[in-house]
């Protein structure tokens, strides 16, 4: 495996770890968004507000085991997202905004971009390689978190 993360940024390392992802927009149904974070102590927080089908916000939290945190680290590490930069990514717009914030080892990234509809948006951007990494990583992370939330609470997270 590539080890670009330094001595304490490795997938199995126990250095600092924090992850937050947000996707949302403000429209005729108000502020609709999906957001989750993994905290260093293992707390996974998940919030989802979709006013279209029901007007109550879903807010869940659960502590995950160190193994689950390690798996999240591994997914991030293997994506190489920590080597990317969002300076040439599309700016957030009225359609929506995505934010990805990660602390791993001694590195902190705080990326912001618009919503990405499909790979066509990725290809036509100014940084297709970097944006593709972001695009796939976000889907893999959402998939992981949705499974955790779904299994633990037996709710079906809404795709935002």
């Amino acid at each position: 495996m590539a080890t670009g993360g330094g001595d304490n940024g490795g997938a199995a390392g126990d250095g600092e770890f924090y992850l937050r992802y947000y996707v949302g927009h403000k429209g005729k149904f108000g502020h609709e968004f999906l957001e989750f974070e993994f905290r260093p102590d293992g707390k996974l927080r998940y919030a989802n507000n979709s006013n279209y089908k029901n007007d109550t916000m879903i807010r869940k939290e659960v502590f995950v085991s160190p193994s689950v945190l390690r798996e999240a680290r591994r997914i991030i590490q293997e994506s190489d997202i920590m080597k990317e930069d969002d300076s040439n990514w599309p700016e957030p717009d009225r359609i929506g905004r995505q934010e990805l914030e990660i602390v791993m080892g001694n590195e902190h990234i705080s990326f912001t971009t618009s919503k990405i509809g499909s790979l066509v948006d990725v290809q036509s951007s100014k940084d297709p390689e970097g944006l593709r990494i972001f695009y796939y990583l976000v889907q893999d992370l959402k998939c992981f978190v949705f499974s955790l939330i779904n299994l633990h609470f037996k709710i079906k997270p809404i795709q935002s």
Binding site: Y22, G24, F33, E35, D85, D86, S87, W89, E91, P92, R97, E99, E101, E107, H108, I109, S110, F111, T112
Partner: peptide, 9 residues
């Protein structure tokens, strides 16, 4: 730290 300063929700 790396990333564009573009505000934060």
């Amino acid at each position: 730290t790396r990333g564009r300063f573009a505000g934060r929700s």
